[in-house]
Simulated scan of single mutants.
Amino acid sequence: MTPAVEFRGVSVHFGATQALAPLDLSVARGETLALLGPSGSGKSTALKALAGFLRPSAGRVLLDGQDVTDLPPHRRGLGVVVQSYALFPHQRVADNVAFGLKARKTRRADVTRRVGEVLELVGMSEYARRYPRELSGGQQQRVALARALAIRPNVLLLDEPLSALDAALREDMVAELLRLRAELPDTTLIYVTHDQSEALALADRIAVLRDSRLVELGPCEQLYRRPATEFTASFLGAANLIPVELVRADGTVATVRLAGRELSAEPSGTLQPERPVALGVRPHRISVGELGPGTFPALVRGVQWRGSGYRLDLRLTDEICDIRAEVPDGPALPAVGDRVGVSIPDGCPLVGVGG
């Protein structure tokens, strides 16, 4: 089946600066792909090249198998929602939503009907006569979504659409986007974010970018549970990377040595004998208690209350490394300077370091 979106060797340069290394990527119809990475990783540049806001320095952009590299944005038929929402302040909500339809010279009756449909879809029907300044940030975001959806795009692009909202509103809007996904099963979504929780909640697959390059691509659960690179392990879920010695590996199970003790691990990438390896251990999988058999000695260096529990900053003895653990509230909470026992579970992903 022809992909809804294809990047074929797409790169972007600003003079001597490489904003996007050659990118080869395809997205299926109805799929939601998250472009995830820190600031400056190239994710927004890729989206702008797809939307037509940037001309690739090399490579081709295809929509439904058609080369659109040289088409202007308004001829690509894409829906776009940006971080600032870009609503027209002098126009009412209904007029903002109707903008794309009027630009396509849609009949007035059809414009009115379609505006009503999409405002109903995003729960904003009663605000049609208001101006953007009379809306909250979450409501403005819904209007921006309605405007993008009004033209019935096959592909909807969202560039950090929730970053200007507070935490509670972001959670509400993630739920709203999930509902929209269910109601628009044939619409392809490409979602740019630096927030890994948004990517995990919304996407079918995640493309992880770093320093303008695609680092890793795969289904959300695969990248979270079995990341192939140290960067993905640490960025997607904030895993601790604990240096270990690789004893043996048979493809599906590996044995590693940490502080003289052997643990089983799950190889998640191509391991090379000459490269160091590390266990990717999520903070919530680390248990902290009294020092005893089967535990690794550690020094408590910091304690932070996080509402539902605590984050502990720990130094594994013998200067192995610093790690973080998430533990529930309780009477046995250690204090800074205490020496504790740390338990690391078997089956954590094993990734290559460096290279």
Score class of each variant (00 low, 15 high):
M1N: 09
V10K: 02
V12A: 01
A21R: 15
V27I: 14
R29N: 06
L36I: 12
L36R: 11
S41K: 10
S44A: 09
K48A: 14
A49T: 13
A51W: 02
R55E: 13
L62E: 04
L62R: 14
D64R: 09
Q66T: 14
Q66N: 13
D67L: 08
V68N: 01
R75A: 02
R76D: 00
V80W: 02
V80G: 01
V80A: 01
Q83W: 07
S84K: 14
S84T: 13
Y85L: 06
L87R: 05
L87I: 07
K102L: 13
R108F: 01
T112I: 15
E117F: 07
E120H: 12
Y127S: 14
R129P: 02
R133V: 12
E134C: 05
S136N: 04
Q140N: 11
V143F: 10
R147V: 04
E160R: 12
S163E: 07
D172Q: 15
D172P: 00
A175S: 12
R179Y: 07
L189E: 00
I190E: 06
V192C: 06
T193G: 01
H194P: 08
A199K: 07
A199T: 09
L200Q: 15
A201P: 09
A203P: 09
D204E: 11
D204F: 10
R210I: 02
R213C: 12
R213Q: 15
C220V: 15
C220M: 04
E221M: 03
Q222A: 14
Y224H: 14
R225C: 03
A228M: 05
A228Y: 10
A233Y: 01
S234P: 00
L236Q: 03
A249Y: 00
T252R: 15
A254R: 10
V256G: 08
L258Y: 05
A259N: 05
A259C: 08
A259Q: 13
L263P: 08
S268L: 12
T270D: 14
P273R: 13
A278Q: 07
G280L: 05
V281M: 09
R282K: 15
H284Y: 10
L291C: 02
T295I: 08
T295R: 15
F296I: 13
V300D: 04
G302R: 15
V303T: 06
Y310I: 08
R311P: 00
D318C: 04
E319C: 00
C321Q: 03
D322G: 05
E326W: 10
P331Y: 02
P331S: 13
A332C: 01
A332H: 15
S343N: 00
G347R: 07
C348R: 12
P349K: 02
V353Y: 03
